[in-house]
Design a binder for these strands. Structure first.
Lengths: 242, 242
DNA sequence: TCAAAAGTGTTTGCTATACACCCATGA
DNA sequence: TCATGGGTGTATAGCAAACACTTTTGA
C-alpha cells in the first residue's frame, strides 16, 4: 500500500472551521454506500425490492435500498441495517456482490457503492416504508421500472450471480421458509432457471444432496394427495456441491 | 438509496479553512484504496508480489501493492495503475475480488479497500521498485511473511477464488505466456491444485476445450523429443466451461 | 368418480478416471 | 545407446437426462 500522507479524519471537536462541513481531509475522499439487491419469489416470479426516490437526483426513479456507511460501521452491517429499515426483517441471507465506483455514477459527488445480494422467502418479509417514508415495492426481474444511478448493472450482476450459484451451491434454499415440500422447492428452481424441470430427476437430485430431511409431517393443500414436508438440515448455512 | 444530506466535495478553491485539510464534508468519509493480489508461477510454485512497508503502521511488514483511489479514477484503473507502478507491466489480467472494510483494519483512519486478483506469466514481469522506492519481492503462497493490515485474509480469498475458478473457467491460461506447450500448461495446473494430474487425461481435456490451437511449431528444450507449441485462441478472454 | 398434485425406477448416453507403452531428440 | 520428457487409446464407473403411470385426497 502506497503511503500517501492521508491524514486522520478530523473529529468533530477539531471543527474550528465551517460548522456545516466539519470533517476535513488532506485529500478528497469518496462517499461509500451499500446497496442491496433483495430477491424473493412472489407469485411464482423472481422479484426484487426497490425504493422510489423522493429527491434529486433521479427523483421519481426507483433505486435499490441502501445508504451511506457509518464511519465506524462494518460494510455488511450497513447493508443489513439498511435492509432491516426497509423490510423490518433481520438475519436475511446476505453476500457481497461487488463494488461499483465508476466516477460520475452519482452526479452529486464521488460515491463508491458496495453491492450486496440478499435472499429471503416471501413469508419472512413484511415490507414497510422506511424511516424516510419513501415508497417501497416489489418488481419482477423481468419487468423493472427505470432505475436510478447504475442500479440496472448491479441488478444484472446480482441476477447472474444467483443463477450461476444454483449449479454449485444450495443458495436457492434461502428463498424457502423453514419447512417446504419438494414441489415448492422445484417451483423455486424452475422460477430461477426459467424452465421446466423433470420431476423425478429433480427429486432424486434434491434428496441425494443430503441437505434436507423429512420432517415426518404432511401438508394438505387441496383436493389431492398431501405432500411430505421437508426441512433444511443446517439452517443458515449454504452448502457447496462437489 | 437513503438521501442523507451528503454535500458536494469542496473544491480546492473553497478551502478558506485549514490549508492542510482543504477537503471538507458534512459527514465523515472513509478513505478508499485498492489492493492487488498478483499471482504468478515461478520455480514451479505459486508466488505473489508483496511490498515492504517503509512507514508506520506496520513498518517492516509486507503488504499487497495498492494505494488510494484518486477522486476521479475508476477502481479498476486504480488497481491497474498501482500494479503498473510496481511491475512496470500493463494489461495484466485483473478481476475484482471483494471489498474489505472492517472498521479498525487500518489504525490511522477508516479505510475501505477494494481488492483485485491479478495474474500474469512470469515472463511478462520485470518487477522494479515502485516510485516510493519500497522493496518489492515475490513470496510463495505457502511461505508468506508477516503481513500488514488484513492482507492475509485478502490473500486467502484470492487463492480460494483462483483455485475455485479452475473448475469452470480457463483463468489459469493467464499464467502462461503467449505460446506454451501442453506440458507447461499441465505444470501450471499441477502447481495450482497442488497435485499430480494424469498426462493423457489432461491433454485430452485441454484439447477438448477448444480454446487453444496448435501453432505448428515445436520447442526443443533438451535432449528429448521436441514439444508442440500451442497458443490461446482468443487472447485476453477467459472462457467459462458449461 | 373425478380432478389435481404427490410420488416413484429404469434405460441410455456422456463425462471423468484409471492405466502403460512407444517416440524423438541431444548428449 | 541411453536418458529424458513428448505423445498416444481403451475400458470402466459414475452422473445426468429422458421418459409414464399409480397414489391419495377433497370436492
Amino acid at each position: 500500500m502506497t503511503d500517501k500522507p492521508h491524514t486522520i479524519a478530523a473529529s468533530d471537536a477539531d471543527a474550528a472551521t465551517d460548522p456545516e462541513q466539519p470533517h476535513c481531509y488532506r485529500y478528497p475522499h469518496p462517499a461509500v454506500t451499500t446497496d442491496v439487491v433483495l430477491f424473493t419469489i412472489r407469485d411464482d416470479r423472481l422479484q426484487l425490492l426497490l425504493i422510489e426516490r423522493g429527491n434529486e437526483p433521479f427523483k421519481g426513479s426507483w433505486a435499490l435500498p441502501g445508504g451511506f456507511v457509518d464511519i465506524d460501521e462494518d460494510l455488511e452491517t450497513c447493508a443489513a441495517r439498511e435492509l432491516a429499515e426497509e423490510t423490518g426483517v433481520e438475519n436475511l441471507y446476505l453476500e457481497q456482490l461487488g463494488t461499483f465506483g465508476k466516477p460520475g455514477r452519482d452526479p452529486r459527488e464521488r460515491v463508491i457503492s458496495v453491492a450486496y445480494l440478499a435472499l429471503a422467502p416471501e413469508s419472512r418479509l413484511q415490507v414497510r416504508a422506511g424511516d424516510d417514508a419513501a415508497a417501497a415495492a416489489w418488481f419482477p426481474v423481468k419487468a423493472l421500472p427505470p432505475l436510478a444511478f447504475d442500479h440496472d448493472e448491479i441488478i444484472a450482476m446480482a441476477h447472474r450471480r444467483l443463477v450461476a450459484k444454483l449449479d454449485y451451491s444450495t443458495i436457492a434454499f434461502q428463498l424457502l421458509p423453514e419447512t417446504f415440500t419438494l414441489s415448492e422447492l422445484q417451483q423455486v428452481y424452475e422460477t430461477l432457471v426459467d424452465a421446466e424441470i423433470d420431476k423425478r430427476n429433480f427429486r432424486k437430485w434434491a434428496q441425494a444432496l443430503e441437505v434436507i430431511e423429512d420432517t415426518g409431517e404432511f401438508r394438505r393443500l387441496g383436493s389431492h394427495r398431501p405432500a411430505r414436508v421437508y426441512r433444511l438440515l443446517d439452517r443458515e448455512r449454504i452448502a457447496f456441491l462437489k
